[in-house]
Nucleic acid binder design. Structure first.
Length: 391
DNA sequence: AATCCCTCCAACCGCCAATCC
DNA sequence: GGGATTGGCGGTTGGAGGGAT
């Protein structure tokens, strides 16, 4: 196996993709969608195997890719998700719109692993190296510590271990209590907040998603498994998880039609009738269109008064809840900060935080990211213009 | 300037599971 | 039912690029 049968039938190119190949693939998929990947190279006039085309599209050409360096928040999120999911890169990527599993995997292998080791944390178990290297006697203490942390704050993740797709969540070599993430150790050491709004500015580049995702999916969308595997309550950061379990929480429901253009909506079960589009799963899916009743996120983005972008709703239940409750996000952020304050004052006397400073840092970082994103956006536009200048 | 070394990342490989025929 | 095909995932590799010597 490995290389698919199509790869043996003819001499196929390997290695880096040329701009011409990119242009061919981009143009083909833009026009016709990918459909069956094995037929794409032939139809697009490429001497590549379908698998290679698929990879190129997913990892590089897809228009909703964020690209650029990972923010500190994203790195923290990856670390936290990795603690729960292990090397399930695709599932981690599903929680980070605009990022590919390959990208995340590379970041992990090249950077995050090292960072964790430098901090004295075992990248496999996410526990202090001293504990990992230690014997059985330390495991007992370790369990006690974790329990203390969990009781001191809402850091325990609600893991959906019944999910057949995900299977029992385990971390290689970890102790039975490993489902509890010690966020204070893993994520806060460099002075970053664990839950911060990710500014997916680049998603605004999806100026016309229907242009990009018009192909028909011949496979049904397994909504149940999709959502049980990537349920928000399972994968969101600890505090968010506790937030979701509050009375304000909502349950996602999906309606998907099986006709030529899959339709889906994401409906929060709350008093509000606001419909929200599912997260990355849909960005990842082959095709989608907006239900009439659902607010089109593109329209939302176009509303200048509404600064919150759609992907932010999807990745930040606080924002989502704010929309549902018609509250200001600021008030909810205050709740979040308050809870985090309690957590730190309870759990670690060494880690006293000035939240004004923290907020300033966040603002500075967001400004920097905005500049970076605008640069990246410009680069991407340049790239697309180079490929599509004549269209 | 030349060479070596290291890092990063795009792409490939091998495997598995689902689907097709 | 069973082999062939395909899509998808995670691990690994090779090479480009940059820094150090």
């Amino acid at each position: 196996m490995g290389r698919h049968s199509c790869c043996y039938k003819q001499k196929l190119r390997k290695g880096l993709w040329s701009p011409e190949e990119d242009e061919k693939l981009l143009r083909h998929i833009t026009k016709y969608g990918h459909g069956c990947w094995s037929s794409v190279p032939k139809q697009a006039g490429l001497q590549r195997c379908g698998k290679s085309c698929r990879l190129r599209w997913i990892n590089y050409l897809r228009p909703d890719l964020k690209r650029g360096t990972f923010s500190q928040e994203e790195e923290n999120l990856i670390i936290e998700l990795h603690a729960v999911l292990g090397n399930r890169w695709s599932q981690i990527a599903a929680q980070m719109p605009g990022r590919t599993d390959n990208e995340i995997k590379n970041l992990w292998n090249s950077c995050l692993k090292k960072k964790l080791r430098q901090r004295g944390i075992d990248p496999v178990t996410h526990k202090p190296l001293s504990e990992v290297e230690g014997g059985e006697d330390k495991k007992i203490q370790q369990s006690t510590n974790s329990l203390d942390m969990a009781s001191g704050a809402s850091t325990e993740l609600n893991l959906n271990t019944d999910d057949p797709k995900l299977g029992p969540v385990s971390m290689e070599g970890s102790s039975p209590c490993s489902n509890t993430i010690d966020s204070s150790k893993d994520l806060f050491m460099d002075g970053q907040f664990p839950i911060q709004q990710l500014n997916y500015t680049s998603n605004a580049r999806l100026s016309n998603p229907s242009l990009w995702f018009t192909q028909t999916s011949n496979r049904g969308l397994d909504i149940d498994s999709e959502f049980s595997a990537c349920s928000m309550s399972t994968l969101l950061p600890p505090l968010t998880t506790s937030f979701l379990s509050s009375p304000m929480a909502f349950k996602p429901s999906l309606t998907v039609s099986s006709d030529s253009h899959s339709m889906a909506s994401f409906t929060p079960h709350s008093s509000s009738s606001t419909e929200l589009q599912s997260g990355s799963s849909f960005f990842e899916s082959n095709s989608y269109s907006w239900e009439k009743e659902a607010p089109n996120p593109i329209h939302l983005m176009e509303h200048q008064g509404e600064e919150i972008r759609w992907p932010e709703y999807l990745n930040n239940p606080l924002l989502m809840a704010a929309a549902l409750q018609n509250q200001t996000t600021q008030s909810l952020c205050n709740i979040e900060i308050k809870l985090e304050t309690d957590f730190f004052t309870n759990s670690s006397s060494n880690t006293m935080w000035s939240f004004n400073q923290q907020q300033q840092q966040q603002q500075q970082q967001q400004q920097q990211e905005a500049v970076q994103n605008s640069d990246l956006c410009a680069k991407d536009i340049q790239r697309l213009t180079a490929a599509y200048g004549h269209i």
